[in-house]
């Protein structure tokens, strides 16, 4: 089963930031896809059911300039 994890992402200011965050999310084990929005400051992460949503917040990409907050988790 796949679930959609919505993150609020802080610190993004340009398209490079979006790419950086997306790359960081896609590098995480179990993550299938990620839609990152600069306008909304969000990321929709499609991931295996085994992925613990909280673990995404502590990915390397969120340890510096960018920060993430867990908004919601929905089963697809």
């Amino acid at each position: 089963m796949v679930k959609t994890i919505e993150l609020r992402v802080y610190g993004m200011t340009c398209d490079d930031c979006v790419l950086h965050v997306k790359t960081g999310l896609l590098g995480a084990s179990g993550v299938k896809d990620a839609e990152v929005s600069l306008k909304d400051g969000t990321a929709l992460v499609h991931a295996d059911d085994t992925v613990k949503p909280e673990t995404l917040l502590s990915l390397d990409v969120f340890r510096g300039k960018y920060k993430a907050q867990l908004r919601s988790v929905k089963n697809e």
Binding site: E54, L56, L57, S58, L59, F62, K67, A68, Q69
Partner: peptide, 9 residues
């Protein structure tokens, strides 16, 4: 609390 909300441990 804030640090943990933003992924801290």
């Amino acid at each position: 609390a804030v640090n943990n909300i933003l992924g801290g441990n």
